[in-house]
């Protein structure tokens, strides 16, 4: 049984179709990352799964439970950091963790949890005086108090410094090692590449790409490209003397490579052209390139994928 199962999920706020028929499922023990520009519907989707919001239509199941109908039972088994996590102003992290422990009826060792998220140095500071990153780390610790099977992290590293971000990554890796399912949203693509087994890219409430990052890169990326600095004479030569697809402008030429022999042909042609060139690189579309291509305003893919 998948830990999370969503199909045909829809949610509308007034005129805004925030979630527009999304379907996906997340296996137990998997780290699944939801990507997408601001307003794509990530938080709405995640809040429906957490049982904090009711859906309009479709189905959503977490650990086999309907999150809205069975929220009270479900909440004992999931951990959540809402986007922009805030708590009461005055309790300290240690008090907050003891409070949560008491609410869940669990013996917790606040200091152990604080060490885990590297917040032990601020365990007695009032919440309102914690830095943005420290607050976020407390949210992380609170989401773990009830030893959850599924953890929902909505932008857990937004506003964190690189070191703190890496600390959160460590926690997420540990969660995965412990066999927990993690659903994560982020605006940092390297974070998704680093942590997620699979990612889904959302736009206007629809999932426009889903799979492992390698799958997405090869499916939606444009393959290998050779980029070289050179003038129009070089571009003209390449187009006339080879069957390669080349595009250029502003002193930079991109040659699209279908296979290795294309690369050899391109290199030969560049050398033969006699034109001036420099800075030759070969690269392929990264997740970021694909992401920008998929969600960018120009040339975006509007239709969803199964």
């Amino acid at each position: 049984m998948p830990a999370i199962e969503v199909s045909g999920l829809k949610k509308k706020y007034g005129d805004i179709q925030a979630v527009d028929g999304t379907s996906f499922s997340v296996d137990e023990g998997e780290v699944f990352s939801l990507l997408g520009p601001n307003g794509a519907g990530k938080t709405t989707t995640i809040e429906i799964l957490e049982g904090l919001r009711n859906k309009d239509s479709g189905t959503a199941k977490v650990l086999g439970l309907d999150p809205w109908e069975s929220g009270y039972e479900l909440h004992k088994r999931i951990g959540v950091i809402p986007q922009g996590f805030k708590f009461l102003d005055y309790p300290t992290p240690r008090e907050a963790l003891s409070y949560y422990g008491a609410l869940f009826g669990r013996k917790v060792d606040p200091d152990e949890l604080l060490r885990r998220v590297i917040l032990d140095d601020a365990s007695n500071v009032w919440f309102q005086n914690l830095s943005g990153g420290q607050k976020q780390k407390l949210g992380m610790a609170l989401s773990l108090v009830n030893d959850p099977q599924v953890v929902f992290l909505d932008e857990p590293t937004t506003g964190l410094d690189p070191q703190a971000r890496r600390a959160v990554w460590e926690v997420v890796r540990k969660l995965k090692d412990e066999g927990r399912t993690v659903m994560l949203t982020t605006h940092y693509l390297e974070e998704a590449e680093e942590l997620a087994d699979r990612v889904a890219i959302m736009k206007h409430g629809k999932i426009v790409a889903m799979g492992t990052t390698a799958e997405i890169e090869s499916k939606f990326g444009s393959g290998q490209r050779m980029v070289v600095k050179g003038g129009d004479d070089l571009l003209k030569y390449l187009r006339e003397s080879t069957r390669l697809h080349a595009e250029g402008g502003a002193g930079s030429i991109t040659i699209f490579l279908r296979d290795k022999s294309d690369a050899m042909v391109a290199l030969g042609a560049i050398e033969e052209s006699g034109a001036a060139w420099e800075d030759l690189t070969v690269r392929r579309d990264s997740l970021e390139d694909v992401f920008l291509k998929l969600v960018g305003e120009g040339g975006s893919i509007e239709k969803g994928v199964e």
Binding site: E50, L52, K76, V80, F85, K86, F87, L88, L103, L142
Partner: peptide, 11 residues
């Protein structure tokens, strides 16, 4: 501040 939401996630 979504504190109600947070509390609703506890028993």
């Amino acid at each position: 501040d979504k504190v109600f939401k947070l509390l609703s996630l506890t028993p």
